[in-house]
Amino acid sequence: MKPFSKKHWILFVLGSSLWFPAAARNTERIIALADSLFRQERYDHAIKEYQRALYFNPGYRRAHITSRLGHTWFLRHDYARAAQYYDIALNLQENDSLRMELHFRKVLCQMLDKEYQFALIELFGMPETMPGYFRKRRDFYLGTCYYYLGSLEEAALAWEEALQDAPRERQQALNRLLRGRNKYYRPNPNTAWYLSLILPGMGQFYAGDIRNGINSLVLNTGIVYLAYTTAINYTVIDAVVSILPWLQRYWQGGFMKASDIARRKREENREELLMEVYSLFEEERK
């Protein structure tokens, strides 16, 4: 008999199979179940099963599980936890494209959580050179962060950078949206405040709230008329003492409210403008 016979080979193969532990097989089954639950959109159960796999076999397919946990928490709108898992997953991922994708998802979670400063730090930490698709995406995210942080100029620069390879008409459309007079700064709450200070209701009209404008105008006109009749029939001091507190209350209330209305309206306009910019990028993606 040879020292390493056919039977030795059989024994060797059987013995080698022991190296693939049952724990891995079991974890694989749990992951398959979790993936199936994820596909069925039963996210609560999927989260539990992924966590079970991670808990009992922490080193097994960790990159896959943590990225799936990130997706699941993302779909449950828990962006802080999603970012946490994306962060673990991207550090484990060996494939460059997938790692980049996870990094962008992490940034998206931070943006959805309104953590724009942290998102900017992540974006600046990305490699300088990257494939065109990811570069455009980074510039778009950069622009969005700047936009929400109140710097339209920097947002415009980042978005222009992202659209530099786009057709000329799309670049012009972006320029039209962002340069010159645009929705980003309008209506100006300070202007609304001053307008209502000069003539009650004007600030509300300027901000586009006609109903509140008429209300403020009529109320304050009535009070002024009352002050006028009081001053005519009695004395100016009588008018000042009795009417001024009312006038002060409604007039001051009016211009404070005009400023609030303008601020709210400006937020709506900014959202609309961002959607218009986003649609340009959507067209570009198609």
Binding site: F4, L11, G15, L18
Partner: peptide
């Protein structure tokens, strides 16, 4: 063949417990 057999068994036997399903 004894030494080869012994070597294979010696290497693989400690792994036996992990074949048990958890």
């Amino acid at each position: 063949g004894l030494s080869v057999t012994f070597l294979i068994v010696f290497l693989c036997l400690p792994l036996y417990p992990q074949t048990q399903e958890t």
